[in-house]
Simulated assay, not measured.
Amino acid sequence: MQKGETRWLTDLEAAAWIPLLSTAMRLPAALDQQLQADAGLSNFEYGVMAALSMRAEKTMRMSELARVANSTLPRLSKVIDRLDRNGWVVRRPDPTDGRSTLATLTRLGVEKVSATAPGHVARVRHLVFDQITPAQVRQLGAIMTKLSAALGHEA
């Protein structure tokens, strides 16, 4: 193959790519719909709160949280403002590094995540895991780990 020549997808690759792309575009909207209806949260907001909830101190630096959430700091800051207005997250300077800001899930935020999680997990289970076998779940995990690594994200 000469430099600049396009390596088009094979029929096999296209047969995998098109449903992957469709799923990647449609799944967040389906999760948003459930989360908005049940909890008044977007999938992104819930993901931010869930990421904080999994930390021992329920706290992360904003820069790390932005990386975990695959977000820019300005977008994350706007979301944290909304979560703060609802009493679910507070923001404060990092005492170990004055240039950094910490986001902390409040007690109300922990309660909101805990109350929201069952419906969210049920929706994820219905849309994804109930559709495939345990062997396919293992394959999916391995595939997504490789793809995530190729994109430069930790699995």
Rank of each mutant, 00 (worst) to 15 (best):
R75W: 03
D81C: 02
V110Y: 08
P93A: 14
F129K: 08
F44Y: 13
R92L: 11
T101G: 07
D94K: 05
D32M: 04
S42F: 04
N70Y: 08
R85L: 13
N70Q: 14
E45P: 02
S53C: 04
S53L: 05
T104Q: 13
S63M: 12
A66Y: 04
D81W: 00
P74W: 04
T116W: 00
T104M: 10
D32C: 07
A56D: 10
E64V: 02
G47K: 14
P95W: 08
H120F: 11
Y46M: 08
Y46V: 02
G87I: 00
G98M: 11
M62F: 06
R107S: 14
S114A: 15
Q33M: 11
R107V: 09
P95A: 08
A115F: 00
R123T: 06
V124R: 08
R85S: 14
H126E: 14
P134R: 09
L65N: 13
H120P: 01
T133D: 08
T72I: 05
L52F: 03
R61P: 06
A117K: 10
V68Q: 15
V121L: 14
G47W: 06
S63Y: 07
G109M: 05
V48E: 13
Y46Q: 09
A69D: 11
K112R: 08
F44W: 09
V48I: 09
M49D: 07
R91L: 04
P74Q: 10
T106P: 00
P95L: 10
T72R: 13
G109P: 01
V121S: 06
L35A: 05
N86L: 13
A37W: 05
G109Y: 00
Q136E: 15
L102W: 03
V79I: 04
A37S: 15
H126F: 03
Q36E: 14
V128S: 09
T96W: 07
R82N: 10
M62A: 15
D94M: 01
I80P: 05
L52A: 07
R138K: 09
A66L: 10
A122Q: 12
T106D: 00
P95H: 10
N86V: 00
A50M: 10
L52D: 10
T133F: 08
T101N: 06
E45R: 09
G40W: 01
S63E: 14
M54H: 15
M54A: 15
D38L: 09
R82S: 14
R123A: 14
T101Y: 03
A39L: 05
H120D: 03
F44R: 15
R99D: 10
R85Q: 14
A50G: 03
L41N: 07
V90W: 09
K78V: 00
